[in-house]
């Protein structure tokens, strides 16, 4: 999406390995916004000039508006399955602790978990730098003005990350509880993180995201004594939207509850693509 004119090309989505000089892997498709915008001008036709005549008609299409993304997502899903790689799409609002959770997980599990990370942010490589400091392969995708990762961006990220067969790929989506819910990436499972400082009404406010989740993590549990966050009420709201999601309460900072997350990771390799099911059942 272009910030200048709002046109939807992906000119300023950038995929970066951080290990090469700036710009090596960037996909630049510059386009010009000229002052003198060209328009077709009407021109007269003399007699005897032949035209192909089209009659007004209605063309039936009846296709899903997300069909293109869903097709690319299906392709990613096949690519991942063929290599025995599981991809976990981690989503939350900004600042809920996705990166802290991933950094701690990668550091603590070490060689037990063969994992790489694809970081999605509008700008900067700050999160990717934090992952790289743990010594894990990481790719930064900057979406520019875009508010979510889509299946095409994930494909480009996977091409750049080149994950090993049988490994785990964490996809840290752009911090946003709205848009990423609608875009299937082809991931194995969706993990939604909500922090206790955000309030326990998040599931009610952002139902699409919580409906799509395979796992909901309540993070920053160490702050529960200081905030009005009712864990049971949050779970009750999630259950009204989503009967199957797993639910964990933890603190990525103190380490409280992380054992449950590691157990989930040990057992998460065969989780189904529930969003795809829930999206396709509407068509």
């Amino acid at each position: 999406m272009c910030t200048t004119c709002g046109c939807g090309d992906e000119a300023n989505t950038r995929v970066s390995t951080l290990q090469q000089p700036e710009g090596m892997l960037e996909h630049e498709h510059p386009h010009v916004h000229a002052e003198g915008h060209d328009h077709p001008h009407p021109h007269g036709h003399g007699p005897g000039h032949e035209h192909t005549v089209h009659h007004p008609e209605t063309i039936t299409l009846e296709q899903n508006l997300l069909a293109k993304n869903d097709l690319l997502a299906a392709r990613n899903r096949g690519w991942l399955a063929g290599r025995g790689i599981r991809a976990l799409n981690v989503m939350s609002s900004p600042g809920a602790g996705k990166t802290t959770l991933l950094v701690r997980t990668l550091a603590e599990l070490g060689a037990r978990l063969n994992a790489g990370v694809i970081e999605g942010d509008q700008e900067t490589s700050l999160d990717a730098d934090r992952i790289r400091a743990v010594g894990r392969p990481v790719i930064q995708i900057n979406t520019g003005a875009g508010c979510h990762l889509d299946a095409d961006m994930l494909r480009r990220g996977l091409d750049a990350l080149d994950p090993q067969t049988g490994s785990t790929v964490f996809i840290e989506n752009v911090g946003n509880l709205v848009c990423p819910a609608l875009f299937d990436l082809g991931e194995t499972a969706k993990v939604v993180v909500v922090s206790v400082t955000e309030g326990d009404d998040k599931p009610q406010k952002y139902p699409h995201m919580f409906r799509a989740a395979d796992l909901v993590i309540v993070n920053k549990a160490d702050l529960l004594p200081y905030v009005e966050f009712d864990v049971d009420e949050c779970l009750r709201q999630i259950r009204q939207l989503n009967s199957h999601a797993h639910f964990l309460v933890l603190s990525a900072t103190t380490g409280e509850g992380l054992a449950g997350w590691y157990d989930w990771l040990d057992n998460a390799s065969t989780r189904s693509d529930t969003l795809t099911e829930s999206l396709t059942d509407a068509h």
Partner: peptide
């Protein structure tokens, strides 16, 4: 009961276009 099936309302479809 929370055991419900959504029948409609989740559509996101391009149905048709009218060309001149």
């Amino acid at each position: 009961s929370a055991d419900v099936e959504v029948l409609s309302g989740r559509e996101l479809m391009l149905m048709s276009v009218e060309v001149a």
